[in-house]
Design a protein around this nucleic acid. Structure first.
Length: 417
RNA sequence: GGGAGUGUAGCGAAGUCUGGCUAAACGCGACGGACUGUAACUCCGUUCCUUCGGGUUCGUAGGUUCGAAUCCUACCGCUCCCA
């Protein structure tokens, strides 16, 4: 049985609020309509949190819609208010750099025939202050703006006029896309509800109450322990392979707990209900197999980094967790371990503790000594427990590499200069 | 402008009255180890640096003292109340 776009989202647990479910389905049925997700260039890469609305947009596209993505060059210069504190403005250089990075990533994820990627600086950047106040400002009621959750929470601690205005800009975005790209739906995280409804209200003001415009938000993602999703050891998981290697990315998904994996399969993959039900069954009957985790890791890594990256990540995982790394050749090391954090090492014999600290594997000598003494350190596949041990970087792999393992599964690759 | 608080290790939070036993309780996080499914739970260890002698810390700068996170002075930051 085939579910429609909304039913599918509900089944996936990916629907938080929607303005007019029946109206949206009707609009989708009566012709090709567009939906958009906006993202501000607050960093030079997207992370897993950003992926959530994009996945929904992709589903919309798969359901026959047109996908539009706004890169918020202009809104990013203003800053979407956070519930607690004012944002630090980004420099225009930083902003430009972030825009470049994020545009490239989005293009990689969505860059096909049926996707439009636009930058709101193209229209917001042209708007003069007086036009802004006359054409749009009149249509926004301060009273309504003050009631938006984010603004209300900030009235206690203070909010600048700049950030207060953000919702107007996002409203203009929605209208602009409505006008020029036939976009009828805006998709965002649950914190975007206020901004989305601002846009819908603006469209109604400008185009009449009959104008079709819809909004949809996605629930905040948390793991089974209630923690915010998407961090690994305190670090964000980035989509940029230079910031988070495909191997680390793959491992992040592979290591998800049984309690979360089915939820994530629904959220982050395009697998259908039968297949996910089967995987859920596998988790219940044979959790040790981790069939669901493996499938999750494959699917998401494929979506973000491509088929080849999946194979590399799996090969590397196999090498690290089952193989004997000491027997690998230098070429195999170079080939397989590209995804592991690396450092430069001198070609001279060095004490193990100094070697680890100099390579950035350990933060201090005290820590290094502790880990060595605890048997947490392996060099080229051999455990080193003597704090006084000397490391000869040229002893393995044709003198090109030193493979360091800290703990059970953290690897570092020393490249000999 | 007046008044009352408050500032301690990554975070939270004791210690301050009654100076030394305090490199500083405890919790969280983080990092290791055992167990295991490259899990979860649980358990154990570590968590300022170190040439392992010691060194440098409790907002900042001075002062009192044999000795200060603890007492005094000034300054800076934050919070609350009144105007």
């Amino acid at each position: 049985m085939k579910m429609n776009f909304i039913e599918d989202l509900k089944w996936r647990g990916a629907l938080n609020q929607i303005t007019d479910e029946a109206g949206l389905l009707e609009a989708m049925a009566s012709g090709k309509v567009g939906a958009y997700v906006g993202t501000d260039p607050t960093a030079d890469s997207l992370h897993l949190g950003h992926l959530i609305p994009f996945m929904v947009l992709k589903r919309f596209q798969n359901a026959g819609g047109k996908a539009v993505i706004i890169i918020g060059g202009a809104t990013g210069a203003i800053g979407d208010p956070r519930p607690t504190t004012e944002r630090q403005l980004l420099s225009s250089e930083q902003l430009a750099e972030n825009e470049k990075g994020i545009t490239a990533q989005v293009t990689k994820l969505f860059g096909d025939n049926d996707t439009r990627i636009v930058n709101n600086n193209d229209w917001l950047g042209q708007l003069t202050l007086t036009d802004f106040l006359r054409d749009y400002g009149k249509l926004f009621s301060i009273n309504v703006m003050l009631k938006k959750d984010v603004v209300a929470s900030r009235l206690e601690t203070g909010i600048s006029f700049t950030e207060f205005t953000y919702q107007v800009l996002q409203g203009i975005d929605f209208h602009e896309l409505w006008r020029r790209e036939d976009v009828k739906l805006q998709i965002g995280g649950s914190d975007q509800w206020g901004n989305i409804t601002s846009g819908i209200d603006l469209i109604h003001s400008l185009e009449g109450n009959e104008a079709k415009a819809f909004g949809l938000t996605i629930p905040l993602m948390t793991d089974s322990t209630g923690k915010k999703f998407g961090k690994s050891e305190g670090n964000a998981i980035w989509l940029d392979p230079k910031k988070t290697s495909p191997y680390t990315f793959y491992q992040f998904w592979l290591n998800q707990g049984d309690a979360d994996v089915v939820k994530y399969l629904k959220y982050f993959t395009f697998l259908g209900s039968e297949e996910i039900d089967d995987l859920a069954e596998a988790v219940a009957t044979n959790p040790g197999e981790r069939l669901a985790q493996r499938r999750l890791a494959q699917e998401v890594t494929k979506f973000v980094h491509g088929e080849a990256a999946v194979k590399e990540a799996e090969d590397l995982s196999t090498a690290l967790f089952s193989g004997n790394v000491a027997t690998l050749s230098a070429a195999q090391i170079a080939d397989a371990f590209g995804g592991v954090p690396s450092f430069e090492a001198a070609n001279t014999v060095k004490n193990i503790v100094d070697f680890l600290v100099d390579g950035g594997v350990e933060a201090s000598k005290r820590q290094a000594r502790e880990d060595v003494a605890n048997g947490a350190i392996s060099i080229n596949g051999e455990k080193v427990t003597d704090v006084a041990a000397e490391i000869n970087p040229l002893s393995h792999y044709d003198g090109q590499f030193v493979l360091v393992r800290r703990g059970k599964k953290k690897y570092f690759l020393g490249k000999i200069k």
